[in-house]
């Protein structure tokens, strides 16, 4: 339904990020390929958000490299939804139109429809509820026609109903062929959505496995502890 994925795999090659003497991400080696959603799982502060920002090109590693198909991070066909997305001070429709290359009312309507916000098109974006804002952020990200969509804990502050609405959209988007890379610390959400799991702790990659294998039998003690509900320090 869309042009074949050309830039994947996204590769971290010995990538580290250090800020004010603290190592936030350490010697990360990771390849992300097309397919079912990849879920970045780990406790708060494990480096999930930083990893997404490195992949998106919002920050540069202080050592090592992040590459796309062997080249630098491109400017097109990748998008990101933040935990607390910025709503531009204009209508919901205008927020979506903002991300489009050219004016296209029909496309705006289709995107709003896709996230169930068609009825609220003219509502000021900042007056939407948290869940509606998160769905609008999804529509805006999809307006960029991404091959890969990064989601940084998009449901962290939502109630179950709103979380369900967002997850449904994410699954539909994944089914349409967009590669989803999503950070979460919610084990249940990871179980519901993940095709494969990248488990992080203290800025390091601890374990990587397919979801079918990771959840019933994690290979590392840290992952097992995390899945049990213990604090992983």
């Amino acid at each position: 339904m869309r042009a074949p994925i050309t830039d994947l795999p996204l590769a971290f090659e010995d990538a580290s990020l250090r800020a004010r003497g603290v190592e936030i991400v350490s010697n990360l080696d990771l390849k992300i390929v097309s397919g079912a959603p990849t879920v970045l799982l780990g406790p708060n502060g494990s480096g999930k958000s930083t990893l997404l920002r490195l992949a998106m090109g919002l920050i540069r590693p202080t050592s090592g490299r992040v590459t796309w198909g062997g080249r630098a991070i491109p400017d097109e066909r990748l998008a990101m939804v933040f935990q607390r997305p910025v709503m531009l001070r204009r209508s919901a429709a205008a927020n979506v139109a903002y991300a489009l290359e050219r004016r296209d009312e029909q496309r705006v309507r289709a995107l709003l429809d896709r996230v169930g916000l068609a009825a609220l098109a003219q509502r000021p974006a900042r007056r939407l509820s948290g869940g509606e804002q998160q769905r609008l952020a999804l529509a805006r990200a999809l307006a960029r026609d991404p091959e890969i969509l990064f989601l940084d804990e998009p449901t962290a502050s939502l109630d179950p109903a709103a979380t369900k609405a967002v997850e449904d959209i994410v699954q539909a988007v994944a089914a349409s062929g967009v590669k989803i890379v999503m950070a979460t610390h919610d084990i249940g959400q990871a179980r519901r959505l993940a095709g494969d799991v990248v488990f992080l702790a203290r800025g390091r990659l601890i374990e990587r496995a397919g979801a079918a294998q990771f959840f019933p039998s994690p290979a590392t003690s840290e992952a097992a502890a995390f899945l049990r509900g213990d604090l992983v320090i």
């Binding site: 919002l58 998008a79 990101m80 933040f82 910025v86 531009l88 001070r89 204009r90 960029r144």
Partner: peptide, 26 residues
Amino acid sequence: EYREELTALRVTPARRVATLLWDARF
């Protein structure tokens, strides 16, 4: 507040200025 969002949207520098001025209009 807007830096990451606009950078993720790959907004050009000139358009950033326009967007910020407009959103700060009040």
